[in-house]
Design a protein around this nucleic acid. Structure first.
Length: 427
RNA sequence: GCCCCGGUAGUGUAGCGGCCUAUCAUGCGGGCCUGUCGAGCCCGCGACCCGGGUUCAAAUCCCGGCCGGGGCGCCA
């Protein structure tokens, strides 16, 4: 066993001799005494080196260690007021496990900031910073919160194919790939598959998996590969789906807060205690037009329009009863020109979209034709509607968008370990 | 897809025709110090993206390329 405890655990072991491992965060030499700040995932600890105890040779060797080298040390934990952290480890022996080259392409303990590109190119180093790590701890907690809630509501976690034969919904660009002698695509959404599973009687399913979009977008809120959290439930309408979504989000935030990851981010967010406000498309439209912005019925909200809404309405809110014409073919029509579609917003950000689905075969085929899609290309999907399909509803949620909101991070790339954007394919 | 902005030491920056042998911080190398903790002090190291042009003179202006950041659109 290389270590007997983590640095955080060591802080509680006053008087005991421990063996700990980590990275050299910083070294301060003051003549005959020196301090090495060691770091692991859980925190920092100060190693105190006294030359007269460890010997001149060792003292020199250890204080010449480069930053970010990996070491394993043995020493005695002592509580002391003299150390900022309230304790220190009086060094007895030190083993060098890995020497870090110098200079570092990206400073870890530095005060200077780095550009996004430098950070991503050296992501392994960037991830050593506690505020960067914290984003991923929060992300993990968010996923756990959602998974925990959905499992409790008897959702089955499923995985659908990411290599598919045709476009899911039309519209967005897909990444073409070679599938042996056939042409295929990376899937933009599990939409069609999770609906088929409703026809299978799975009743309630969810999936947390990558989705791919080949749009050349240049924004801080789009990725070409992102994690989509999708849920679908049978014998349910749009309101049921919204409730499940709302509760999932609340549990996600609760978990993120409880994980304490947010402490490193100076992010102050509370679990929303009130129900999310629900605004109809028509009311939202009126609100926007009343603020001096001009928007026609049947248009989607522009970024500028959403900024107005974001200011007028509280944090999380649903926009419901969308015009049928601007939603995909699979949403359920309602009162002729409307649909049972909804979007979940956080201020001006689109977090999720969902709907009660159209489970009527004839109607579905008609709407597909109206939208210029060829039903023959969707035969594998449509046949599930011919032999007993229950009414159902569901949603897709962009994980990284939620992580942005919960952590307060401004660029969505910071919410992914190794982001895929317009030009980035490595690392 | 349309549009805007930017590339200066390892990192982050200042400079935006001659005052540049290029600023500052951080880092790195060396030295001093037994309580540092954003340590301090002294010495040193290290850079104008590439190609072409304008000019007596280019980091600075112009053109092209490469690379990056962002806005809109599209969406999650």
């Amino acid at each position: 066993m290389l270590r007997t405890c983590t640095l955080k655990e060591a802080s509680q072991l006053d008087g005991e001799t421990v063996k700990v491992c980590g990275w050299v965060h910083d070294i301060r030499v003051l003549g005959k005494i020196a301090f090495i700040i060691i770091r692991d995932r859980y925190g920092l600890a100060q190693l105190t080196l006294i030359r007269s105890i460890i010997g001149k040779e060792n003292f020199k060797k250890y204080t010449k260690l480069t930053r970010e080298s990996v070491i394993c040390v043995q020493g005695k934990v002592q509580k002391t007021e003299q150390a900022k952290l309230g304790f220190e480890i009086l060094l007895e022996s030190l083993e060098i496990l890995s020497i870090a080259e110098t200079p570092l392409p990206l400073g870890v303990a530095d005060k200077v900031s780095a550009d996004m590109e430098t950070r991503i190119e050296n992501r392994f180093l960037d991830l050593r910073k506690k505020e960067v790590l914290a984003v991923f701890e929060a992300r993990s907690a968010i996923i756990q919160g959602i998974r925990e809630y959905l499992a409790q509501e008897h959702f089955i976690e499923v995985h659908t194919p990411k290599i598919v034969a045709t476009a899911t919904e039309g519209g967005t660009e897909l990444f073409p790939i070679k599938y042996f002698e056939k042409d295929a695509y990376l899937n933009q959404s599990p939409q069609l598959y999770k609906q088929i599973l409703m026809g299978s009687g799975f009743d309630r399913v969810f999936e947390i998996a990558p989705a791919f979009r080949a749009e050349e977008h240049n924004t801080t809120r789009h990725l070409n590969e992102f994690i989509s959290i999708d849920a679908e439930l049978s014998f349910a309408d749009d309101n049921d789906a919204m409730q499940i979504l709302e509760n999932s989000i609340k549990n996600a935030i609760k978990h993120a807060i409880e994980s304490e990851a947010l402490n490193a981010l100076e992010q102050d967010i509370e679990t929303p205690d009130k129900p999310f406000e629900r605004v109809t498309y028509d009311d939202a439209l009126d609100l926007i037009n009343s603020k001096g912005y001009s928007m026609e019925w049947g248009e989607d909200f522009s970024t500028e329009a959403l900024k107005i809404l974001g200011k007028e309405i509280d944090d999380f809110y649903f926009i419901t009863h969308w015009p049928l014409e601007i939603k995909p073919f699979y949403v359920l029509p309602f009162e002729e020109k409307y649909s049972k579609a909804f979007d979940l917003m956080y201020k001006d950000k689109e977090l999720s979209s969902g709907a009660q689905r159209n489970h009527n075969y004839e109607s579905l085929v008609n709407i597909m034709k109206q939208k210029g899609l060829n039903p023959e290309n969707f035969e594998f999907y449509l046949r599930a509607f011919k032999y007993g399909m229950p009414p159902h509803a569901g949603w897709g949620l962009g994980l990284e968008r939620l992580v942005m909101i919960v952590t307060g991070v401004k660029n969505i790339r910071e919410c992914v370990l190794f982001p895929r954007d317009r030009t980035r394919l490595v690392p």
